[in-house]
Design a protein around this nucleic acid. Structure first.
Length: 571
DNA sequence: GATTTCACGTA
DNA sequence: CGTACGTGAAATCC
């Protein structure tokens, strides 16, 4: 079969393991694949041509990954929809409605069939689109996958939506990188699917050893577990009079406990208690207890049992662009695993990790998205806070706090005075943040450099004191200025990550963790050096693709890359 | 039973 | 009175 599909050619794909697959090219030519050889043919097309696969959602990506097909290029309609309309949940019904200019509040839902069900004379179960223009709910829920006719119709609609999305992205005149971002966000969904499918290598024996150091060996049974728990509680309560009975898991109770020994605190957070360690031995005992309790409840033996497979891989579900931040998020503790557990993250036999993290990513992103030439010059330094400090005539630490404070919306503390200096030294960068802040306070939506919409809700200030209203407005401002930086950084990171993924696939390397500004790639031992080079090269390429400098000094991005066997071996 | 608050881990 | 996120326990609300 000669398909003559060209590299990068846009082809829509709908597939169902039982029914087969349909591929629709932009000229509407349709290729149908039977269920028996669909995946083999798809693998061949990917290998020989490498088109840009268009699919409705990552469920199609999941099917491919499950069949060991790892496309390099894709276009995820749901991911691009989120880019265009903001970071909320979506489905084909909403994506289609947007494309047709239909009101999303009118999207039909499947109603249970009962006595009162009105038979629609226009009802055509074999048509995806209803006479009112909306998608049929049963198609949205999967009826598209029942036979090849329907698959081909579903892929055809995907093709139609994709063309429309390309047009919409091109209309974002102030965001020339939006189309490039749409591609990388799509690939990031695919990467998330692979991360979810394949997991992170973990040495459970080592993990159990570390956990044991905090809470003792694995409990033998429920009684043993409860005895160990009591023993941990007692270690704290023993510092108090014998009649004291406080529930250490209850913050209000802990507050009373501290009051009993003469310590008054507004809350019992660790950073606050940390300063009071010397006041009374119970504080130190309590902090130790907290650490153990965290290990026991969140990152203990149960956590290992529930999230690590027999293949020694830790798996969670991944979302490629979440909330306001647009960052990747993951469950199963993959993004908040205590650093103490890092020694248990070990490359498999015959492999090494290439670990790389972006240095000072947010201030560098600020220099880039704001177009501040002076701040761009500062990024030429490995440590950009040094030239900023020099320019401001302050200590490096002060400069750092001021820059971070400006991006996070901090207005008090040490950074406050240095902030004035920043405003006069880097007015363009500071103006960018100020504009984001003001727009957000006014309830105006924002778009990141890559064109991702950050939706703002107009603040409801009725029945609120002036003080509260001001405080809410300030919070919205902080949210806005931070979302523009954190969101843009997330886009650059993902562009980097998906380039690394695509370039290192043929080396047998695999990204096993994305951690906001850090990549962990597992590579065959003899390909580790090459993979590390690719990681560094891809950062420069990502920076160019995401924000090519058209005028003024180039913004420099830096990564710290190392080859290690164990995650804890770096930093 | 669902939602909110507090707490704490990561960036 | 610096941001984002996920998770768990207890309190709170219905």
């Amino acid at each position: 079969m000669s398909l003559n599909i060209e590299p990068g050619e846009v082809v829509a794909l709908a597939l169902d393991p039982a029914a087969g697959a349909a591929i629709v090219r932009s000229d509407a030519e349709t290729i149908l694949l039977g269920a028996d050889d669909a995946f083999a043919t798809l693998a061949r097309i990917e290998r020989e041509a490498g088109p840009r696969w268009v699919w409705w959602s990552k469920s199609t990506a999941w099917q491919l990954v499950e069949n060991d097909i790892h496309p390099t290029r894709c276009w995820d309609l749901a991911a691009v929809h989120r880019l265009l309309y903001g970071g909320w949940r979506t489905n084909p019904a909403m994506i289609w409605a947007a494309c047709q200019g239909l009101d999303t509040s009118g999207i039909p839902e499947t109603a249970p069939v009962d006595l009162f069900t009105v038979v629609d004379e226009f009802d055509r179960p074999d048509e995806a689109v209803r006479h009112d223009g909306y998608l049929r709910p049963d198609w949205v829920e999967g009826a598209w996958g029942t036979n090849l006719d329907r698959l081909s119709r579903w892929a055809g609609l995907a093709s139609e939506v994709q063309s429309w999305q390309v047009g919409r992205l091109a209309e974002l005149a102030d965001h020339p990188r939006a189309t490039a971002t749409a591609r990388s966000e799509s690939a990031a969904e695919l990467l998330g699917t692979e991360l979810q499918h394949d997991g992170l290598p973990i040495d459970t024996a080592e993990a159990e050893r570390i956990i044991g150091g905090f809470i003792g060996p694995r409990p033998l049974d429920a009684a043993d577990e409860s005895a160990k728990l009591d023993a941990r509680d007692r270690a704290v309560l023993d510092h108090l009079p014998a009649d004291a009975d406080f529930d250490l898991r209850n913050p209000a109770n802990v507050k009373s406990l501290l009051r009993r020994v003469g310590i008054e605190v507004p809350d019992t957070r660790a950073w606050r208690l940390e300063q009071l360690r010397t006041q009374h031995p119970v504080v130190d005992a309590l902090l130790t207890w907290r650490k153990a309790e965290r290990m026991a409840t969140t990152f203990g033996y149960t956590w290992l049992d529930e999230n690590v497979g027999p293949d020694q891989r830790l798996r969670g579900s991944w979302s490629a662009s979440d909330g306001a931040s647009g960052r990747m998020t993951a469950t199963a503790g993959l993004h908040n695993m205590p650093a103490d557990l890092r020694p248990s993250i070990v490359a498999e036999d015959g492999f090494l990790f290439v670990r790389s993290d972006l240095g000072q990513i947010e201030p560098r992103v600020l220099a880039s998205v704001s177009g501040d030439g002076d701040l761009a010059l500062a990024t030429h330094d490995d440590d950009m806070y040094a030239p900023v400090a020099e320019r401001l005539g302050v200590e490096r630490e002060i400069a750092k706090v001021a820059v971070l404070g400006a991006m996070y919306g901090q207005t008090t503390g040490h950074g406050a005075e240095a902030l004035r200096g920043l405003e006069s030294a880097y007015p363009i960068a500071m103006g960018y943040l100020y504009n984001a802040d003001t727009a957000a306070q006014g309830g105006h939506h924002l778009r990141t450099n890559g064109g991702r919409l950050i939706r703002m809700r107009a603040g409801d200030v009725t029945e609120m004191s002036d003080r509260d209203a001001r405080s809410r407005a300030a919070a919205r401002g902080r949210y806005g200025r931070n979302a523009m930086i954190q969101g843009a950084a997330a886009e650059l990171f993902k562009m980097w990550a998906v380039l690394v993924r695509a370039r290192s696939l043929n080396l047998g390397a695999q990204i096993v963790l994305c951690l906001h500004d850090e990549l962990l790639v597992q590579a065959p031992t003899d390909q580790a050096e090459r993979t590390a080079e690719i990681v560094d090269d891809c950062l420069q390429e990502a920076a160019y693709r995401w924000a090519p400098t058209t005028r003024g000094p180039k913004v420099r991005f830096v990564a710290d890359t190392s080859i290690i066997a164990r995650w804890s071996d770096a930093k």
